[in-house]
Design a protein around this nucleic acid. Sequence first.
DNA 1: GTTGAAAGCTGTTGAAT
DNA 2: ATTCAACAGCTTTCAAC
Lengths: 155, 155
Amino acid sequence: MDELDSLILEHLQRDARTTNRELARVLGIAPSTCLERTRALRKRGIITGFHAAVDLRAINRPVQALLSIQVRPLSRDVIEGFKAYVSALPEVLSVFVIAGGDDFLVHVAVPDVDQLHTFLMDRFSQRREIVNFRSNVIYQHVSTQVVSPLHDTTV
Amino acid sequence: MDELDSLILEHLQRDARTTNRELARVLGIAPSTCLERTRALRKRGIITGFHAAVDLRAINRPVQALLSIQVRPLSRDVIEGFKAYVSALPEVLSVFVIAGGDDFLVHVAVPDVDQLHTFLMDRFSQRREIVNFRSNVIYQHVSTQVVSPLHDTTV
DNA sequence: GTTGAAAGCTGTTGAAT
DNA sequence: ATTCAACAGCTTTCAAC
């Protein structure tokens, strides 16, 4: 994982459809070298895939919310079962299993506030493992485009 | 936004590097038609880009946390200023500006728990707009690969 | 909106350094 | 680990439906 790998990673996170030739040209290396490096990044599991990003507003899901949920009993079965249930709901974007006060944080996107309410009542109110529930509407969501390795400071 | 568009969206979210030919073959349409549809999806802003996904563990950032933060005064300047500050930190993956108890939820990824602690102390303790702060380690994070339009139920 | 064919580039390979 | 040259396969264009 040298400087060149980091640069390739950065470019492909910004634009996964840059042609290999163009990427090589920008980095000042041969296309075959660039191809080899990129392949190695995939093979080593550093790049896990290439994905199209979709604008949630453009597909009629402009309303986002974060749900904080506490479940009991705190067993593996309950955690895994609830996680699987929530992950499979089409409204759900992302599920965090967390330490501390709450057990789950769930990120959802729906067409409007009415449907958020309906969704919460239909999908959560009857789940008997839920002992605490809170929902927060999201005003803004900023995501970092590029993630880079952080150097260890512990040396 | 018909059935064909939805299928293209779904495929490109799973694998943005499917060749246009292959995608056309799977959908049973001509490559030129497929290219035209895909272009239209980009032009209409439905597809916003193509990005490589990176494994955080593979780049030495296996420890993730969620930070819940309350700031005061709750003015536009404070909100925007804090959002800009946090978004620019290399440890930060994502920033939510939310309604309700807290004002911000920040998703971070760092090399280890020690560096999480250091990060919190160095980057947050001296910020005078912060009036409340809580951090939760993330045990698991599941993200939906494909997001699809949700049909309106309000008709 | 959709198609098929042609032209120009691109990914990919293998031998060589 | 990197490069060059060459082939097969791809994207893209455009006239026609």
